[in-house]
Structure formats: C-alpha cells, structure tokens
C-alpha cells in the first residue's frame, strides 16, 4: 500500500518507472473488467490505454484518503459509460430489466434443476462466459467486480455510490439471472 502511494507520488513527478508499476498492477484486472463489458478484446485494449491516460492526467485530483483501487475502477467505469454513450450502445437500467422478462420469481423455481451439476467445470465456465454477455450491463458490471476482480461489496458500493444492501441484492440477482440464462440454454 505504501509502495503504491510512493508510485503515485513519483508518477506525479513524471517518473515513468513508477507509473509503469501502477499499469502493471492494474492492467489485468481492468482488462478483465473492460473486456467483459465491451465484449471485444481489441476495443477493450484501446479503452484500457485511454483509461490509463485518464488516470495519469487525473492523478493530481486523487485524494490519498480514498482507496486507490476504488478510484481507478471508478474512472474505468465512467470511461466505459462514456464509450457506450458515444457508440449509443443500448444499456439497460435496473428498472428496465424488470420489464425484460426477468423477475425473481422466475429465477427461483420451487423444483429447480441443477444447472451446475449438468456440466463439467470447464464446460460450465464456457457457458457462464457466454451467458455473461447476455446479462444486463448494470448487473454484469457488479458481477465482474465481485467475482473476477474480487472487489469487496463495500468497495463496489463505494465505486457506484450505492447502498451496501442494494449492491448485495444486485449481485445476488446477477448470479441467479446467470443461472436462469444457463437453464434456458439447455
């Protein structure tokens, strides 16, 4: 953590090596987030370059009391939203989703089939990856942060400025909707 603070300070002085350390630390988590949000690795890499450029130019505005990882993911999230706005990509709000045929009642059938046990682990991963792309963007984002970037619920709540309970509920919805999508695929 102290190392990170040192890298930030050195980067502010224009030290390339220090900023390289920051890039190396965050490039993989950010690529996994951005890539799964825009569904294309090449576009994701371009966006990632822009995100790091934004991080570097906004570094002076960073307040040390704020967790750096959260700050970085906040920048990335805003950048992805900007990208969608520019491309006019359709994104669903949570309110819309409730009218898109997903409801929690559908997600929780009484006699539920075991989706997970039907596939081997590697098959299941592949299916999940495909189903993830069908998940509404607002849920997909939180899901990726929680299970791929391994952010805590608190960190996610901080990034999205949402109450902790809402974040937990949305991530639960994401998991169950993903299961529903897998069930539908069978």
């Amino acid at each position: 953590m102290n190392d990170e603070r040192e890298y930030i300070l050195k980067s502010l002085d224009g030290n390339q090596e220090a900023f390289a350390m920051i890039i190396q630390k965050y490039q993989t988590p950010l690529l996994n987030y951005v890539g799964r949000m825009v569904k294309d690795k090449e576009t994701a890499l371009d966006l990632l370059q822009e995100i790091f450029l934004k991080i570097f130019t906004s570094l002076r505005q960073y307040k040390p009391h704020y967790p750096f990882r959260t700050w970085i993911f906040k920048i990335a999230s805003n950048h992805v939203i900007d990208f969608w706005r520019k491309r006019r990509v359709e994104t669903y709000s949570l309110d819309d989703e409730e009218n898109h045929g997903f409801s929690l009642l559908q997600v929780l059938p009484l006699q539920e089939k075991s989706v997970a046990r039907k596939y081997e682990l590697h098959q299941l991963r592949k299916k999940i990856e495909q189903a993830l792309q069908k998940l509404p963007a607002s849920l997909r984002e939180l899901f990726i942060w929680r299970y791929i970037n391994e952010l805590s619920y608190e960190e996610i709540a901080e990034i999205k400025n949402l109450p902790l309970g809402t974040v937990k509920n949305r991530i639960f919805q994401a998991k169950e909707k993903l299961r529903l999508l897998l069930e539908k695929e069978e």
């Binding site: 490039q27 993989t28 690529l31 996994n32 890539g35 690795k41 994701a44 890499l45 990632l48 997970a116 682990l121 299941l124 991963r125 999940i128 990856e129 299970y147 791929i148 998991k175 993903l178």
Partner: peptide, 10 residues
C-alpha cells in the same frame, strides 16, 4: 466455476 473464470491477459 464463476470464481475460476479465465483471466484475460494484456
């Protein structure tokens, strides 16, 4: 399965 999804590498 979710937690062990493959990580993309730059």
């Amino acid at each position: 399965a979710i937690k062990s999804l493959p990580r993309w590498q730059p």
